[in-house]
């Protein structure tokens, strides 16, 4: 039975960038449970790998924020990804040069508050037709993962733990 909710962990900075510079449409990678380690053993939900497990991403990023570790794996990966995307969006004329500059500035001056991890809680029903299953070759494990390319802000709630 499909889960009622989907979960995704993202830093506050990403939420801000999507709100301010991507017309409040959010690109999220999501899973069917918050913590695959707590899912029933042998279920598909338990087989989501650590690098896609929202709980592990949350804990990892929070530890890096708490210890002000600007070279942590999560921090490096997300900062790298967002800087590449800012340049890509700019080259593709999807954002203006000043938008790109503002995104890059926020990455250049990392302040802990902007990197606070947030959990997106997404009621599945409202977005079911737009959910894209991630190809098995790109999953972190054998458990199901999904991508939403155009999640609206009124389609998910944001919580911190």
């Amino acid at each position: 039975m499909p889960s009622l909710l989907l979960y995704s962990t993202n830093p506050r900075l990403k939420l801000m960038i999507q709100e301010e510079h991507r017309r409040d449409l959010h690109y999220v990678w999501c899973s069917e449970c918050f913590d695959s380690a707590l899912a029933p053993p042998h279920s598909l939900r338990a087989l989501v790998g650590s690098s896609s497990n929202p709980a592990d991403i949350y804990r990892g990023l929070k530890a890096e924020v708490d210890s002000a570790d600007k070279h942590g794996n999560n921090f490096t990966r997300i900062a790298g990804s967002l800087s590449v995307l800012a340049q890509k969006w700019y080259i593709a004329n999807e954002i203006a040069e000043h938008d790109r500059d503002e995104i890059l500035y926020m990455l250049m001056e990392p302040t802990p508050r902007l990197w606070t991890p947030l959990v997106y809680v997404i009621p599945r029903d409202a977005v079911a037709t737009r959910l894209k299953p991630v190809h098995p070759s790109k999953r972190s494990g054998t458990g199901r993962e999904f991508v939403m390319e155009d999640l609206r802000r009124d389609e998910f709630d944001v919580i911190t733990l």
């Binding site: 990403k14 690109y27 990678w29 690098s51 990966r77 997300i78 790298g80 990804s81 967002l82 590449v84 995307l85 340049q87 890509k88 080259i91 790109k138 991508v147």
Partner: peptide, 12 residues
């Protein structure tokens, strides 16, 4: 990037 992290086509 470990996989296209946020976007299927992160290549420039």
């Amino acid at each position: 990037l470990p996989r296209p992290f946020e976007d299927e086509s992160a290549e420039i």
